[in-house]
């Protein structure tokens, strides 16, 4: 009987502990993937973006905080990409179309940050944003000034870059919304410009 009571107690403790650990590991049974988790984390705890210098397509060194635009949309790219990124490029172009008037007023910019700075020099970045014709106002591209900074940028946005097995990279894609205080406040599906623009508009 002692064994019965002890076992019942121990099983219940194990059950409670198991539920508690699972709860903690999934943010309360809501986030079962890293992607969901990072998006939820961005919404719940806006974190400052790295104050590290980026080399922009015009060759200038700036931090995100130095950009005059109030709001920023940020995504991560590498310019040699020949697969999904082409779709990403069209989505970015569509985003800029939707935001054309605000971008023209200098209220918002879309910054593509390269995680491949060794290859993506300003010339490559210029070619990248002009892929679909001349880059519209507010369409920017940059790469970390120092290669060793890449990890910190990826970390801050929760981006994981892996070898795609075909000579390129694969990475979890999303568009980050960075607020005037230069905090990452939301991550939106990369392939959904309308959603990104809507998420931006409810904020300003």
């Amino acid at each position: 009987m002692v064994g019965m009571a002890r076992t019942l107690g121990a099983s219940l403790v194990a059950l409670a502990a198991g539920l508690a650990v699972t709860w903690a590991a999934t943010d309360g049974f809501t986030a079962f993937t890293l992607e969901t988790a990072r998006r939820a984390a961005a919404l719940a705890h806006p974190a400052p973006v790295p104050a590290l210098p980026l080399r922009f397509a015009d060759g200038q060194l700036r931090r995100l905080a130095d950009l005059p635009e109030q709001w920023l949309l940020v995504d991560f790219v590498y310019t040699r990409c020949t697969s999904l990124c082409l779709a990403q490029g069209s989505a970015d172009a569509r985003t800029m179309e939707l935001l054309a008037s605000e971008a023209a007023q200098g209220r918002v910019a879309l910054v593509s940050i390269s995680f491949d700075p060794d290859h993506d020099d300003p010339a490559a970045l210029r070619a990248f944003i002009a892929r679909d014709g001349a880059a519209p106002p507010g369409r920017l591209a940059a790469a970390p000034a120092a290669t060793q900074d890449v990890a910190r940028w990826l970390d801050a946005f929760g981006v994981v870059v892996i070898d795609d097995g075909a000579g390129g990279y694969a990475h979890n894609e999303a568009i980050g919304i960075v607020d005037p205080d230069r905090r990452l406040v939301a991550l939106i599906d990369a392939g959904d410009p309308e959603a990104a623009v809507a998420a931006l508009r409810v904020r300003w």
């Binding site: 002692v2 064994g3 019965m4 002890r6 076992t7 107690g9 121990a10 099983s11 194990a14 059950l15 198991g18």
Partner: peptide
């Protein structure tokens, strides 16, 4: 073992 009658606790873990 006295906390693991019929293996219940171990199986839960």
């Amino acid at each position: 073992d006295s906390f693991n009658r019929a293996g219940a606790t171990g199986i839960v873990i």
